[in-house]
Structure formats: structure tokens, C-alpha cells
Design a protein around this nucleic acid. Structure first.
Length: 430
RNA sequence: GUGGACGUAGCUCAGCUGGUAGAGCCCCGGGUUGUGAUCCCGGCCGUCGUGGGUUCGAGUCCCAUCGUCCACCCCA
């Protein structure tokens, strides 16, 4: 096994046998996003390292230890994108697209984080990313959440996910709350575990999210972020909740939902599941009103979310919500050099006449037995046989594979116009 | 980065307290000189993750290393 090449740790091949849920998710999301008025954007997978440091936050785990950073031949420090928002915002600024304009955008592709892989967490993973730029909300906030809820319904996984919601307020209001929180935890420092003590310096809000059961009672007594919101953020949050109520989208307000990236403000949300083990966040995002100005663009309010494609795919697969791939309609069994050529030409004529037809020509030879075995395993409705005998009489033998039926002859020239009827008959069973 | 479990054929796995590898599936061919999904026969496929050590002898024991999985941290 040493001799055979291996993929990079945490980077996976998606083989044809596993591709169906990916395509279904992508197609469903693409259509839905279009229906809500979102446009696709494609941005580079690599950006200047500084862009991510400035947007995500220098004291986050992503920037501190998870980025794929390298120096290119020109001496610049570049980084494989760990998330999509920074690049999209950069594209808006670089192309001069802000200036008070509004953009509803989506993007999909691979992201990279150097973490130790486990279930639902990979070093190359994929996101579907949606951004609404230039909207102060809370109307967009609500519509964006409704869009995700609709996607879960369309995919058939809505009963396995639930919505967590919170408001972080403005950065100023959060700063005041943070001070209160730190002094509360300092007063009880002996009860803090090692992880929490470390967070006390860098990111005290994260202590609220601790999974350590011993911390629960201490956390329960801590000041609550929601009680310390500034007035405008409180109104924003109330209006968002009222709209979600009007939609009938259920949610839980989770005051401990903090999110890992520094740029969030006001609305944050997370769709979680119990079905995937420890990595339970399937889709999450929030409002980042300060980020664009911080990166040098005109100050512009915005909100976005990222969906973990691998996680949604895993959920679909686990719930059996994966459409079966369409089998081919016809498989051409051929024998003899002249017949092989005639079969290839016939297949092209069939495709000319019926562009949607799924027709597979047996390539690479093989005896009749092997070819019929392949025809059967391809799932084809019909086997079309074109050997030397058929060629001599100018016909194709047509054999239904999915039911017991007589094999019949069809003149080669007539087949392109009869194939639909033959398929329909074979499926009906007459 | 930390911890635990596990690495035998392309896949799923068997291989007792050490005696130098096996089954099923897949693939290919034959039985049916041109007919699949059933049946029968045959073939292909392994330096037992890798490197050391103990031993007369290691897939089995020991050490190291790499990899996979799961969890922590954190996150999609």
C-alpha cells in the first residue's frame, strides 16, 4: 500500500456511487436561490493571507492554527480560503460594486482548514454560501432563514434539523457585556476548567458554550447576553422573531450561541441536528454589519450563512432522502467490426432524434454474454442488438430487459422514430 | 494540538493460546459456436499498512512510524 498514491489527509474523493446526493443538493439549492433572487458569484480559492486575518479575526482558532498558508514564488503570503465570506466581500470592494448598491449572492466550492479530521469535519470541505449585502434587516434576516427552512423541506430533512437563534448586539454593546462576563467568571475562577480559563483571556463568550457538564451550573448563573442588548439591536431581534413566528418557522433562542468568527453582529443563527454525532451544525451564519467597512469598503450592512455540504449530504444519505440515479434507456449490444461501426452511427442518429435519450453503446468488445450482463447491470430498459446477422437484414433486435417479452426486430432506419414507442411499450409491459 | 479504537485481496470479513494466508462479493472466461438478472466450473487479485525487534519460526507478541475512524478543542 505504500507504493500506491494516497490523497491528502482529510481530503476526500467523491466517487460516482456517492455523487447523487451532492448533485441533488446542488441542483435544489441552485433553483431555490434563483427563485429568491440570488445570483451566483465565483471567486478565487486563494487570497492574500491578510484578508482572512483581518476579516475572521486574529484570535480565532481558524486564523491561529487552521489556515493553509504558503509563500508563493513572488514572496507573497497566500492562503487557501477557510470560508467564503471574506473573498466575496473582497470581490465587491475590488470591483467597485458597493456604493450603496445591494447584492444577493451565492457561491459554492471547497474550503480548507487544517484540522484533525473526524465525522463531518474535513480539511477540504464544501460549502454553499449565501450573502445579502447592503440590507440592514431584519427583513432579509427573516427571508434568508425562510429560504434555508424551505431548502430542508425540499430535501426532506426538515424533521431532523432545528433552528437556534441569538442576537450578539452591536460590537459596542457586546464589549460592555463582555466586561461583566469576565468579572463574573473571575469571581468564580476556581470553578473554571482549564479550557475555560484559557478562554477567559481570548474569548470569554465561548465559555458559555462549554460542553463540560461541571460548568453548567456556573454558566447558568452568568449574565445573559440577550439582557444586555442595545435598544436598536433589541428591536431588530424582536422584529426578526415576529416575522419567523408569522412564517411558522420554529426556533429556539439560545443566548449562548456565539459563533466562532469575530465579524458577527446582531443576528446569528445555526441549524443543528442530532443525527450526525459531534459535528452538529449543518448551516450557520449571521449578520456582519461592520466587516465591509473594516476591510476598506464603504460601510455596508450585510448578512450571510454557510451550509456544510458534506454534513447535509450525510444527513440526506442517513435519512434515505437520495434520489435514485436515472438508469439508461437503451444499451447497444454489438458484434463484428462493420456492426460496431453501424451501432456507433445508429446511436448518434438516436441522439439526434431524441436528445434526452440515455443510450449506452457497448465499448471495448466482449462476447454476447458479457455484453448482456453489462446491459442488465446498467439498468437499461432495452437491449438493442446489432450483430452481423442483424446488419445483413438491415435490422436491430430489440429486447426488453425489465420484463418477460418477445425479442422483436426493427429496421435500422426506423429505430430513431420508433425508439420512444418501444421504450414506452417496454415500460408499460405490453 | 490532545485522547481512544482499529489497519489481512478492489469491497465485506475469517484466521484458536505464534507453525510461513482463506471465504463471499466484484471483475474476466467457460458450461449455452449470439442473449442478462438464477445455477455450475474455472481464472485474476495479497511483499497480512510500513520499518525494526523477540523467536528455530510472526498475520498473530513487543517498539516505532504512517494511515483511518471516533471524541475533545473548535467548527460547515
Amino acid at each position: 500500500m505504500t507504493a500506491s498514491p494516497q490523497p491528502i489527509r482529510g481530503m476526500n474523493d467523491v466517487l460516482p456511487e456517492a455523487i447523487a446526493p451532492w448533485q441533488h443538493l446542488e441542483a435544489t439549492a441552485r433553483e431555490l436561490l434563483g427563485a429568491y433572487g440570488y445570483e451566483e458569484i465565483r471567486v478565487p480559492v486563494v487570497e492574500h493571507t491578510e484578508l482572512f486575518e483581518r476579516s475572521i479575526g486574529e484570535h480565532t482558532d481558524i486564523v491561529e492554527k487552521e489556515m493553509y498558508t504558503f509563500t508563493d514564488l513572488g514572496g507573497d503570503s497566500l492562503t487557501l480560503r477557510p470560508e467564503a465570506t471574506a473573498g466575496i466581500v473582497r470581490a465587491m470592494i475590488s470591483n467597485g460594486l458597493l456604493r450603496g448598491a445591494r447584492h444577493k449572492l451565492w457561491c459554492t466550492g471547497p474550503m480548507f482548514r487544517h484540522e484533525k479530521p473526524q465525522k463531518g469535519r474535513y480539511r477540504q470541505f464544501h460549502q454553499i454560501d449565501v450573502e445579502a449585502i447592503g440590507f440592514a434587516g431584519p427583513d432579509v434576516d427573516a427571508e434568508l432563514i425562510a429560504l434555508t427552512a424551505r431548502l430542508w423541506r425540499q430535501l426532506g430533512i426538515d424533521h431532523s434539523v432545528r433552528l437556534q437563534l441569538n442576537s450578539l448586539g452591536t460590537p459596542e454593546a457586546r464589549r460592555g457585556y463582555r466586561e461583566q462576563l469576565v468579572s463574573y467568571f473571575r469571581a468564580h475562577e476556581v470553578r473554571l476548567d482549564a479550557d475555560s480559563r484559557r478562554r477567559l483571556e481570548g474569548n470569554p463568550l465561548r465559555i458559555l458554550d462549554s460542553k463540560n457538564p461541571d460548568m453548567q451550573s456556573l454558566v447558568a448563573g452568568a449574565p445573559v447576553l440577550t439582557d444586555h442588548l442595545d435598544a436598536a439591536s433589541r428591536v431588530h431581534f424582536e422584529r426578526l422573531r415576529a416575522t419567523l413566528d408569522a412564517f411558522g418557522v420554529p426556533y429556539t433562542v439560545n443566548p449562548r450561541l456565539v459563533r466562532g468568527l469575530d465579524y458577527y453582529s446582531r443576528t446569528v443563527f445555526e441549524w443543528v441536528t442530532d443525527a450526525l454525532g459531534a459535528q452538529d451544525a449543518v448551516c450557520s451564519g449571521g449578520r456582519y454589519d461592520g466587516l465591509i467597512g473594516q476591510l476598506g469598503g464603504e460601510p455596508t450592512p450585510a448578512i450571510g450563512f454557510a451550509m456544510g455540504v458534506e454534513r447535509v449530504v450525510a444527513l440526506m444519505a442517513q435519512l434515505g432522502e437520495v434520489p435514485a440515479p436515472a438508469p439508461s434507456d437503451a444499451y447497444l449490444v454489438v458484434q463484428g467490426e462493420a456492426a460496431e461501426r453501424a451501432a456507433l452511427v445508429l446511436a448518434e442518429r438516436l441522439r439526434d432524434a431524441q436528445p434526452a435519450l440515455r443510450v449506452v453503446v457497448n465499448l471495448g468488445g466482449g462476447n454476447f454474454k458479457a455484453q448482456f450482463r453489462r446491459a442488465n447491470r446498467s439498468g437499461a430498459t432495452l437491449a438493442l442488438i446489432l450483430g452481423e446477422a442483424e446488419l445483413r437484414r438491415g435490422a436491430v433486435a430489440v429486447k426488453p430487459l425489465r420484463r418477460e417479452a418477445e425479442q422483436t426486430d426493427c429496421p435500422i432506419d426506423a429505430l430513431p422514430h420508433r425508439i420512444d414507442a418501444l421504450l414506452a411499450a417496454a415500460r408499460r409491459g405490453d
